[in-house]
Every structure is written in C-alpha cells, then in structure tokens.
Design a protein around this nucleic acid. Structure first.
Lengths: 218, 218
DNA sequence: TGACATAGTGTCGAATGAACACTAATTTAG
DNA sequence: CTAAATTAGTGTTCATTCGACACTATGTCA
C-alpha cells in the first residue's frame, strides 16, 4: 500500500481566487490536469513530503501548509492501492512560479473555472475550498494570501474573492481594527489615486484569538 | 508502507466525558493502553476500516464517525513505517460495550485521567478532544452522545462535560429553542424529582444551520 | 403531608452585527 | 493649472444577540 500527498494550492491574482494544477505527462490520465503531488518517501513525514513535492513541481517554497483530509478508496487510483493525504496551501499574491523542472506545465486556474481533474482530485479540491472558506471566518489564514505589507482594500479583496460576496467597507474595517492584529506602517502605497496606508500582520496576540469564537462574521 | 486507522471514541457517563482505550497484549508497548485501531485491509476504504476495527475491538456498531487527521512520522511505530489515519467517534451514553473478542480489555477512561498511551496516541488523543470541543460549537455533533430521547438537562450536561464549564440553564435553553432542532415529545422522564420532558433531535433543517456561523456560543 | 430535589421560566443592560453616504487625497486629462 | 475621475477613509443608528441573574412548579420520598 502506497501513501501519497496531493496539494491544493490557492492564491489570489487580480482579485480572483485561483488554484494550481499540473498537466499530467504520463498515464494514467495523461494530458489531464491534476493536483500537484507525489509519493511519500521512506524517511520523511507527511508534511515534509508535501513541501518537497510543492517545491519540485512548482518551485514554490515559502507557503502556509495545512493537512486537509486523507482519501483512501481502494479504486481511487488505477495503478493500485494508494492512500492520498491531501494538503491545502496558501501562497501570497506576489510570489511567482519558478520556472523549474516540471513547472512549465503548472498553471493557475480560477476556482470557478476548473478543468476536469484526474483521479478523485475534483473531490479533494471541493473539500479544500470548503475548508478554506470556513477557516477564513475563525482564523487569520487570510493574511497568508497577501504580501508582508498590504492595504486594507487588498485585505478586503481577499475576503471577497474567497467568500464570493461583496463586503461593506466600513464594517470590514471596524472589525479588523477591533481585532488589533494589524500594525499600521508609515508607508503608503502609491500608484492608484489617493495613496493607501500599508499595514502589516502581527501574530503577537494570535493565541488569545482562539477563544474569541468567530473572528470574521461576514 | 502500511496504513492503519486509530480511533478516539468518546462517550459521556454520569456527566463525565470518557474515551475508550484497549490494553495491548503484545509488544511493542505490551501492557500499555492504546487507542483501538488496526491495519487497513486491501479492499476496504478508510472509513470501513475504522468501523470494522471499532466493531472487532469493542463490539460497538452504531456510531458517529469522522476522520480526524493523519499521522505519519517515520518513527512513530517501532515496527516500521506506518501511517495512521485517526478517526474520532461518538457513541451515545446508553450503548454498552459488547463483551466481545478483545473487548475484555477495553475500558472507558475519563478524559481528565488518561493513562500513558502507546505510540503517539497521546498526541492523537489531544487532537481529537480539541476537535470535539470545536465541533460542539458550530455543529450538532453533541446530540450523538445522547440516546434518541433525552431531556434538556441531559443535553446541557453533555455540553458542560465537554467544554468543562457550567452553563446558565436559561440561556442554554433559550439558545436551543431558537435553533428549532428539537421536537418535544409527549413523554416525560420519571425517576428523579419533577419529571422532565423528553425531546428528540430532528435533523430536518440541518443544512440551513451551516450558514448560521456559530451555533452554540457558550 | 411536608421537606427536598430537579424542572422550568423572563427581563434587562451590554455588546455586536448590518445597513447606509459622504468627504479626502491624489492622478490624469483637457 | 484646473476640473474631473478614482480610490481611500470615516460614524451613526437600529436590530439582534449575549450574558447575568432568581424564583416558581411539580413531582418523589421519608
């Protein structure tokens, strides 16, 4: 019985939530898109395997990574019995795909326009996006999708892209403010119209947040 | 590489949250307590394996079962590389352990008085109890720990046992009432002092609840 | 039949969520 | 250089919900 990892990697580009897929170069499902992933090696644990595959297939290194669910139907892979431990990963908008080894075939797809996926990867993907939506509300994972410095409008865009609804600007800002998890910087982002103040996420009081129940009741 | 399942089974007895452990009869960790579990067979999926092991080791059949997390450190089992898919299960207070095969060695332990556990089962257990506490707040899993008919006081006891704090009776009842998930029966439970009305959980409107955010804000 | 034990019920103040519109600062086009 | 366009930023009100709090009701049992 083999054990593999498959990874659903999300990012936000131009206000759209996207996931990364790789095109399969060999059978089974040759030519179809699939989640990046691969077998767990003898001496690495599951998280290590997921990070390694992520690097190998996409060149992406610095990510938020979290185990999602394990899929183990006996017939989920025509090659034999393979149990897959699925992960979901978040990368910030500014990070690029390295042009590495297999990376030529890696592409970002808007989550609303996913192609047909190999194996049971469609099921894994659905599970991942549901988890992302839930986690967004009661944790601070949302910040993982932004660069270190960001504007409040950018932050709101992350929430809107994932939850697929528009939010009230004033309510959003009030809620973020009262959580006291942002450090206002003395820098502004120019380039648009009125310059926007930049902020930085400070995880200092992160532990206390756990007891607060729902953090982002949007 | 082998794949196993390990199951953290919770129940409530006399207002105390308990988990089921089995004493190991063979090495490694002979004589120590461990979570019930075992290897996944060639032609069964993970959920089936968990249910089968549960039945074999404890005689318990009708349970709420949910996959928890997968543990895969290379050295978590001295016998070799074994990835364990952990489950957590809830059984209602009225269900008894069958006196079956290995069941002689299965025992309920209050979660606050767990013995030392074999392998990395202490870690799995901690993970399970944290998940149970979280799920209690935004789902209706709590009802799985009660028989079909129950009183409101019994329900409150479940919440108090798991959250380890006392709740206000009136606030608790108000909240339950407004969720409209209980059907009042024309039966009363006698035997104490004033008879208590019995209720039944109706999952009818369960889907709608998902959008309500936190269900039980205690 | 009276003491005891558990079931059951309502109010009020505080905090939070949801709806809603204008002013401020800058860029760019004429 | 000035006006128009664009995005940033800011408060209030109302409805709902949370959290604290104490007494009455109904049965059992001595």
């Amino acid at each position: 019985m083999k054990v593999a990892v498959d990874i659903v990697i999300f990012t936000i580009q131009a206000g759209v939530l996207k996931a990364l897929l790789v095109k399969r170069l060999i059978p089974p499902f040759e030519g179809q898109f699939a989640l990046p992933g691969g077998f767990v090696l003898k001496d690495e644990d599951l998280d290590q395997a997921a990070l390694r595959e992520l690097r190998e297939e996409t060149g992406i290194g610095d990510v938020y990574l979290e185990q999602l669910y394990s899929f183990g139907s006996p017939d989920r892979d025509p090659r034999g019995r393979i149990v897959s431990v699925a992960y979901f990963a978040l990368v910030s908008a500014d990070r690029q795909l390295h042009a590495g080894s297999d990376a030529a075939e890696a592409q970002w797809f808007p989550v609303s326009k996913m192609p047909q996926l190999a194996f049971d990867h469609a099921e894994i993907f659905e599970y991942a996006i549901e988890r992302l939506r839930n986690k967004l509300e009661y944790t601070t994972v949302g910040f993982q999708l932004l660069p270190e410095k960001f504007t409040l409008t950018e932050l709101q865009t992350v929430y809107e892209a994932i939850l697929e609804k528009t939010l009230d600007k004033r309510n959003f800002r009030r809620k973020i403010a009262q959580l006291k998890i942002l450090k206002p910087l003395r820098e502004f982002q120019h380039g648009g119209q009125r310059p926007a103040q930049l902020f930085k996420f400070v995880a200092t009081k992160f532990e206390k947040l756990k007891d607060k129940g729902i953090l982002f009741p949007f």
